[in-house]
Amino acid sequence: MHTVGYRMNAVLTLGVTILALICAMASLADNLNLPSPSAHVQVLNINWFQKQPNGNDEVSLTLNVSADLQSMFTWNTKQVFVFLAAEYETPQNALNQVSLWDSILPSKEHAKFLIHTTNKYRFTDQESNLRGKEFNLTLHWHVMPKTGKMFADKIVMTGYNLPQEYR
């Protein structure tokens, strides 16, 4: 009964169980965090706006993105992935989500930022529906934990418009 093998087995089992418990508790503790994020996005300029040869509208924007996501960080947070998406409805699509810009926030110190940028990914429609289109800009963030459950949330900012004519 009390051989080396049994003792090693017992120690190993206990160790793994405790580790698993600590991981579960760390993940559960994330639920106690009540974040208060804020975000503000400004479209500074429409750099160009045209119809591609394949018939899809494409637009290039210059944006000011400012946000404070410091309250998202807990002791179980590895990083926060943040991205800005243009969201709009067209006659054929109930929802279009086009990511324009994203960033990885590795720590709390980087979580309050003001960024001046053009869109990192192409803002392209699937057809030619962008002229005069009203769209939302949504700041999404995905919290990646050191271990356990991942969280995601967003702030929707409404009332952005594209021009009536190509330029």
Binding site: Q92, N93, A94, L95, N96, Q97, V98, D102, I104, Q126
Partner: peptide, 19 residues
């Protein structure tokens, strides 16, 4: 990073990217 969801059928076109 991109989602286009059809109005009538609900089918989706998805584009992905590694961080």
């Amino acid at each position: 990073i991109k989602v286009h969801e059809r109005q009538d059928t609900g089918e989706v076109d998805i584009l992905t990217k590694g961080d």
